[in-house]
């Protein structure tokens, strides 16, 4: 497993859940109990933690530093370009689907809940990271064949 694969697994197992779950909890609380300073502060904290969760990658990279001279090459670069493109396309489809959902479910007076905006944006970030991570791992495929011990 190389550096990119390690980072991808961390993003998939830690960063995506942080965005998807902890970013939504304050929104759910605001929806159920109404807005308050504490809920808004919790939402701000959750999004800041989600944004800083990339710091986990630095921590794990230091911890699992290997002796290999080269950790990143042209194949890794190509893989990341393709997976980022896939993530971007999926994000775009997600936003279109979210818009259609909002149009279809809007109340008779054509108003929507203010809670939808943070949900759509935060989940969009989670969708992007999830698709990027999965497509990265798919491109690397199964490691094991043609490997010399």
């Amino acid at each position: 497993m190389n550096k990119v694969q390690r980072e991808t697994w961390i993003a998939l197992l830690l960063v995506v859940p942080v965005w998807a779950i902890f970013g939504q909890l304050p929104v759910l609380l605001i929806y159920l109990e109404g807005p308050s300073f504490l809920h808004l502060f919790a939402f701000a904290c959750a999004t800041i933690i989600g944004g800083l969760s990339w710091m986990l990658l630095l921590f794990f990279n230091r911890k699992w530093k290997r002796k290999a001279k080269i950790e990143f090459d042209e194949r890794d670069k190509l893989t990341l370009i393709r997976s980022t493109l896939a993530g971007y396309i999926m994000l775009w489809i997600y936003f279109i689907a979210a818009c259609i959902y909002v149009w279809l479910t809007a109340s008779p007076d054509r108003s929507i809940s203010v809670n939808l905006m943070p949900i759509v944006i935060v989940e969009g970030i989670a969708v992007f990271i999830f698709v990027q991570s999965v497509t990265t791992l798919i491109q690397y495929g199964r490691v094991g064949k043609n490997v010399e011990k």
Partner: peptide, 28 residues
């Protein structure tokens, strides 16, 4: 020479050499 030695000499990761050998990746 091992895949790792060839990778170090050519400036790529061992996984890339493995992928090229298996015909799964066309190098630049």
């Amino acid at each position: 020479i091992t895949q790792q030695q060839l990778a170090d000499k050519t400036g790529v990761t061992r996984q890339t050499i493995i992928a090229i050998e298996a015909g799964k990746y066309a190098p630049s």
